[in-house]
Simulated scan of single mutants.
Amino acid sequence: MNSAITIILLIDDNGAVVRIMKEYTVALKILIVGCGDIGTPLGLQLAAAGHQVWGLRRSSLLPAPLKTINADVTVAATLSVLADLSFDCVVMTLTPAAFSDAGYEQVFNQGLLNVLQRLKQPLQIKRLFFISSTSVYHQSDGQWVDEYSPVEPVSFSGKRLLQAEQSLVASGIAFSIIRFAGIYGPGRQRLLDQVMSGQGSAKTPSLYTNRIHRDDCVGFLAHLVGKVAQGKSVEPCYIGVDSQPVTMWELKRWLAQQLGVDPERLTQEESSRRNSKRCSNKRLLATGYQLQYPGYQSGYTELIKAYLNSNK
């Protein structure tokens, strides 16, 4: 494997060098399973950093310099090519074909097992990063949760994801689970459409929502892979959210103001969601990663401009 050395000089107030640090970065062989709007830009970012990156997706070619593997995680026979390749890191960003219990079981449970069974020498992989969701948390009273909080999911999606997490823990492979929440960004404009159509949210009971911009999902994953390349330790679980939990009522009223919609005209609809929690990102920030969009206002501002321009 190729490697690079970064020299870091620590200088005191008088300009004198007080310490010299060396950071070794190893070029990794990385497999990204699931190359959508997170996996593909992640692969390109990692390739730009000097890593070799393979991307597994059902069909179509990935942009250069990514190496394409066309396969379906739900069809074990299509994954036979993995036995001929060796990887240092694996990132799994899976997306079910349908938002249903069967769809989630097929992709997150059976799909994960299919990949684990066909990886060459899986126990020698430095790290497998599995993208999960904060839906594994059951808390519903607006309390704060972190990576140590109990998980007793009530939704089918949370239950299936927790089962996948447990399978990964039992596999013996070195892993990190990243529980993202409320991913938004280009092409993810469901809330904007709702607000434009006048659909609001009830003020009470308070329903907290946690969010993270797509670019920060990519950035944080690349940051973690970079730590592995430098031989640094990473935690087995991270919550991936920004620094600003907000009630859905407050969020939709703010979006309405930015979109030119009268907030007072929004309907006060009760949500079918019953989970209401505030997710802590202290562990994420402790890694040294700096959020590009630390709150929903900064993240949605650019999206709103593009949204309004596209609807002129």
Rank of each mutant, 00 (worst) to 15 (best):
T25L: 04
S271A: 10
P205T: 08
T40M: 09
S272K: 11
A76I: 13
A48V: 00
L207G: 04
A222N: 06
N281K: 03
G43E: 01
Q117T: 09
P122K: 05
Y289F: 14
A170G: 10
M92V: 09
L85K: 11
I5M: 04
M248D: 15
Q163G: 02
S272M: 12
Q121V: 10
H138L: 00
V17F: 00
A164C: 10
I32H: 08
L255V: 04
E270D: 13
L113C: 05
K252S: 03
L191R: 05
L113N: 04
S80F: 08
L82D: 04
V136P: 04
D262W: 11
F99A: 13
S171E: 13
V246F: 12
A170L: 14
S310R: 12
I8R: 07
I178D: 03
F175C: 01
S176T: 15
S272V: 11
A77S: 15
G226K: 00
S86N: 10
V145G: 05
V33G: 03
Q290C: 04
V107S: 01
E269F: 00
I239V: 10
L44R: 01
H51T: 01
E269L: 14
G198I: 10
V17G: 00
I212R: 02
Y137F: 14
R253E: 12
S176P: 05
A256N: 02
E250R: 03
R19N: 15
D12M: 09
S167F: 07
N2S: 11
R190Y: 14
Q121H: 13
C217Y: 04
Q166I: 07
Q258E: 15
S272F: 11
P294N: 03
K126D: 13
R278D: 09
I8T: 02
S100Q: 09
G39W: 02
D13M: 06
L207W: 07
R265N: 14
L191I: 06
T93F: 08
S271L: 07
L85N: 01
P96C: 14
V75F: 11
H213N: 06
Y148F: 05
Q292M: 08
R253L: 05
V53I: 01
S135M: 04
S201L: 09
E269D: 15
Q189Y: 13
I20H: 03
V234L: 11
K282C: 03
Y137G: 05
R283S: 09
N114R: 10
V246L: 05
G240C: 13
I11S: 02
G182R: 06
P96D: 11
D146G: 12
K277F: 07
Y238I: 05
G111P: 13
K22H: 15
A256F: 01
I304Y: 08
L10D: 12
T134P: 06
L259R: 07
K120Y: 12
Q290Y: 00
K227Y: 06
G36C: 09
Y208I: 03
N14T: 04
G219V: 06
I125D: 03
V218Y: 08
I212W: 05
L221N: 02
